[in-house]
Design a protein around this nucleic acid. Sequence first.
DNA 1: CATGCTTTTGACATTCATTTTCAGTTATTT
DNA 2: AAATAACTGAAAATGAATGTCAAAAGCATG
Lengths: 143, 143
Amino acid sequence: MILEKKKIFNDFAASKGLRSTRQRDIILDIFLSTHQHVSVEELYLKIKASNPGIGHATVYRTLKLFSEAGLAREILLHDGQTRYEHVVAGEHHDHLVCTGCNSIIEFEDETIENLQKDIAARHGFLIKNHKLEIYGLCAACRQ
Amino acid sequence: MILEKKKIFNDFAASKGLRSTRQRDIILDIFLSTHQHVSVEELYLKIKASNPGIGHATVYRTLKLFSEAGLAREILLHDGQTRYEHVVAGEHHDHLVCTGCNSIIEFEDETIENLQKDIAARHGFLIKNHKLEIYGLCAACRQ
DNA sequence: CATGCTTTTGACATTCATTTTCAGTTATTT
DNA sequence: AAATAACTGAAAATGAATGTCAAAAGCATG
């Protein structure tokens, strides 16, 4: 699974004439080891812990590449930071975002996915990706 | 409809002890005259055309108020600017965003809304609002 | 309608995430 | 190993959004 993702990135890099570098390997490793929804800053700090040399800009640049390669997906919640989540082939999940404690619950719903396809088809629209976020209070924050 | 919105804002202002100012009236008028999804910058420019005195910060502050008052809703697409859309009571629409020409098609789907409620209920989650955006290519950009 | 109190405003400075720049470094090709 | 081109890190630049603060405007009161 991790190896598979590395292969996806290597193939992408090859197809684009990108070079294989130490930094990209490290960033990919650490990104793959994270939980969902890492902000760039979080990832940068994690990387710096083991690899002090790696700069801010490189992390930004590399995450963009992961997202082009289809390994990661940018998500914008409401805290002013871009976050990246892991893309799992053939799976798409959406988010319940708690505005009380900032926790995120993921869910999947095939019926919603299909309805979206219907709607897109009705408008002659070709879906590339989509994003559904439900904001509110989680069970714990409701009291 | 426009009068109704002004009343909503006036009531909100009254309940919060806010004052009635020329600037807020102007910004509300112009906001109500816009199409969906105005960015703060777009609105600011439009306002400046007829009212050169009004400053950037005031537009930001006032849009925040509209959104607290329930007249407007913040949306984050992918161009790094916060946009505001009009809130129509009892109605919620979602967006098909064309990454080719940046056009936005709105749609409504009650079944999706209901499925979201089911999902939230299943997680003990209290929905405040939600957002569904489908990215891809519109009919015109597909060729 | 003058007074005093409070909110609001606009200009400017500031912050913070992200991008750009560019000189030096590194990977790849020959 | 030399040539070429991509990559990197540090620092500067950008751009959206927020904070600051003195001056201006609203609003209640005498």
